[in-house]
Amino acid sequence: MSWPLYLSMLKSHAKMLGGFIYGAVAYIVLIIWIYPSIADMKGFNDMINALPEGMRKLIGMENGINSLADYIAGEFYGMLFLIILMVYVILTATRLMARLVDQGSMAYLLATPNSRIKIAATQASVMITGLGLIIAFTTISGIAASEWLISGYELDVASFITLNVLTFLIFSVIASYCFFISSAFNDEKTALGISAGLTLLFYMLNMAGKLSEETEWLLNFTIFKLYDPIKMINNETDALLMGSLLGVAAVLLFTASIVVFNRRNLPL
């Protein structure tokens, strides 16, 4: 890690990161704020139950809305937050490595007596820090909003935090393969295209897999199979096992990125 580089990278990413944090926080607060009116609406669950099962799975309301936790997990973590994090991770991974190589500014960083390993590790830490900050802010505002903005509905803080930690780990894995791609290519657009294409493919496999029983096997080819916010918040997943596996996968992929970057020829 090179601290000066880390701090200056965070600073130059602050604006974009701030935008993502703002978006996520504003949305989670809003969605919690309107929860009482939805929960009190009679017939809402009947309406949901009238939808075909595949459809319900897709919009994250398999069992209708029974609790605040289900609602947050299904409506926010299963939909918008997923997209926010996906976009953030793909963009940032590309910006941190491939863009610098493509534009040539990586030359200045590597011309200092810091090894490539150190530079790449610093960039990876910036990536993880950003992801962590978005999720941390979202967690805190989720807890705060359900505590103070609405009354009469309880959010189990411990399982909410478990959900957030698992979300962080899953997106760390996505970040790590995007970072790997970003480290391996000279062209920013190529790196962005491949990362975005692959992630979108995973996402679509996930949607298709959830639609019906016949397509369920598709889920085996996507990382999003592991991302089931409703199960996570209801503690129906083995969080410890899954969390450690995800953590190991992310570390391995980040290490592989650094190794690839260390060995390859750079057109700087």
């Binding site: 200056s8 604006k15 534009q103 040539g104 500014s105 200045y108 011309a111 007596p113 490539r116």
Partner: peptide, 25 residues
């Protein structure tokens, strides 16, 4: 390379710097 770079000053042919900084920064 990182050992070598301790004693070297380099001016790349492409002049692109990190974004969002002033010259002094």
């Amino acid at each position: 390379s990182s050992e070598v770079q301790k004693r070297v000053g380099y001016l790349p042919g492409e002049i692109v710097f990190l974004e969002g900084m002033t010259g002094l920064e």
